[in-house]
Design a binder for these strands. Structure first.
Lengths: 343, 343
DNA sequence: CAAGGGAATGACAACGTCGACATTTTTGAT
DNA sequence: ATCAAAAATGTCGACGTTGTCATTCCCTTG
């Protein structure tokens, strides 16, 4: 393998000079620099990160740990965001997936340490504690899309589910909807509670009574094997005498079933029922006709900013635990229409 | 940082002996081994991959290059398959995304070489040539879910779109369907042609005439910004006098629109129209009611076997180009019903 | 008890890079 | 032309590991 030494030989200079050129250090004549650069090109030399790291004890590599995230299609954008930041800042990404198995997670931390990664991005779907294995070693860590259960041990960055759901609720209220259905997300998801809470509060602030609301559980159980009540719940909800004029869906995916339930009952969307989703999972929200009005989860930004944050945590060499929240943008499409105020 | 030297000191042996213990080499007394292992535990020693690599010029790391794959939610399973194989075989995964930009791809190859990765898994959605930048350097590479355009330069592993579509077509024919609609995938996708071809041939073998078929283009244009004709095409197709009794959808995602079109026209699924998808993108296929009969793309296996293959290519140190194909499993759900044969 | 042989252990160098420091060359002011 | 300061370049060692080869130890055999 061509090393710095061969380049030095070819260019007729010392290794150190080559090193200087590679790292853009000063104190090199323009002439020498060019000669070295030519030698580098000719020999196809590429610096050896391992050797570099062994000297500097900096690997310029971030680790990503995911649990089921890579299973849930929406959140690939988190990873894309991280990659984009890393790529444009000369960092590499080492990636591993726990599949939810604690023993595998322990292995992964070990593997990461063994690569002497500079920091970890811990990406999960759940509100959970980072494995002690992790906490012991003081690798800078930023949690993305989740938060440490044990108070504020680690920095975390999350979507603002509350704000997203509040905006969506207001959106419906402003358009005259007064009987609103709500089909709940699987309660094990961190967002479930936040969204429902936002819905309840916003609606109450506006003066609606509990009896104007139809709230149903859409799903429950472990990820990948959940019980699915959405279709049944939506059907039942829409057959009520005073059926809701609008339904908020826990997420976009569940909205598919609500659409089908409504259409099967012969209801038109949005004239007879308006529907809003959550996530802006475009595979779904754009496939539905009429296209789904929803709140976009800022997955890409979560990843991008998470990586950026991790980098600064590493630079400052102290982990300032705190929580950041990124807002969800309301995406206004065509699944909602206005309702005449009651005479 | 605690190194092999500190362990040796603590255990009162030479570094080499510690090295022997770590790598499970013979010629170490049980007694010594235990003493060393204790020292390792006490000090929390973790081997330094970079140093190891510098000696052995083996990084035990695979690189994954993706283009838009990580954007398309279905294919995250490829990555999961790779990770699972890697994890259970002591390999690490370095990951990068081109976003379709050739210049970034070049950078990524450089980054990979700089980490001296052992091999590359090239994962894309398209039928395309690997960048010359890649071909020059002789890093063992396996292509997943795509194939090199220039004949058989590199090993590739793909889903058997043809077989999947043939099985699905037969499935419909066996259930008495004789007028069948087909809504085509975006032609830039490798699978589009294969699936349509399989459909056409199977139907012809069976003796149907071209006039029994309604074939429409569902989407076209660049990924992420495609024109979407599915809903319109399905609506039009289902309004024909002799409307199809079954529709094959280019993929599951497009089936959403077909469902909605059918329901909006007051047709029942499957009694009035049967529908089949492709991919088994469970987020969709299980959300649709009735649940969608479809052909499961073997994404996980593609990744898992791709990694395994790459490993053997590395071991043999010669790249035997060839193509492997993994079959698609038909997933029989409830979106199809039998049709009485014409009297 | 000596010799021989294998098992256990150790000393040392080398991998590729860069930091600390040393040396040489150039520059500029006198 | 002289000399000091600055710039350019070089030497050397260390990072953590393991391969090569040497050394020490213990056991077997005669």
């Amino acid at each position: 393998m061509v090393s710095i030494v061969s380049v030095a030989k070819a260019a007729g200079v010392s290794n150190k000079t080559v090193s200087r050129v590679i790292n853009g250090e000063p104190h090199v004549t323009e002439d020498t620099r060019e000669r070295v650069e030519k030698a580098i090109r000719d020999l196809g030399y590429i610096p050896n990160m391992a050797a570099r790291q062994i000297r500097s004890s900096r690997s310029n590599t971030f680790g990503i740990i995911t649990d089921y995230v890579s299973t849930t299609p929406y959140s690939v954008d988190i990873v894309r965001g991280i990659q984009d930041w890393a790529n444009t800042h000369g960092k590499s990404i080492l990636m591993a997936n726990t599949g939810g198995l604690p023993e595998r997670e322990a292995e992964i931390w070990k593997m990461f340490q063994s690569h002497r990664i500079d920091g970890v991005l811990y990406v999960t779907m759940y509100h959970r504690v980072v494995d002690p294995e992790a906490g012991d070693v003081s690798i800078p860590t930023v949690m993305i899309n989740c938060r440490p259960q044990t108070s504020e041990l680690l920095p975390s960055i999350e979507p603002d589910d509350f704000q997203g759901a509040r905006d969506l609720t207001r959106y419906l209220l402003e358009r005259g909807h007064r009987r609103i259905g709500y089909i709940r997300l699987n309660p094990i998801l961190l967002g479930a509670e936040l969204r429902l809470d936002a819905f309840r509060r916003t609606v109450k602030e506006f003066g609606l009574a509990e009896s104007d609301l139809s709230i149903r559980l859409g799903m429950e159980g472990p990820v990948g094997a959940e019980e699915n009540y959405v279709f049944a719940a939506a059907t039942e909800m829409l057959q009520q005498k005073d059926r809701p004029t609008a339904i908020m869906s826990g997420n976009d995916e569940m909205a598919i079933q609500i659409y089908i339930a409504a259409l099967t009952l012969g209801l038109r969307i949005p004239q007879d029922v308006s529907i809003v989703g959550f996530d802006d999972f475009r595979t779904v929200s754009l496939a539905l006709k009429p296209e789904l009005t929803t709140a976009a989860l800022p997955y890409y930004d979560l990843g991008f900013q998470g990586a950026e944050w991790l980098n600064s945590v590493i630079a400052e060499e102290k982990v300032r635990a705190s929580r950041r929240v990124i807002s969800c943008k309301l995406v206004d499409r065509t699944s909602v229409c206005s309702v005449k105020p009651p005479e």
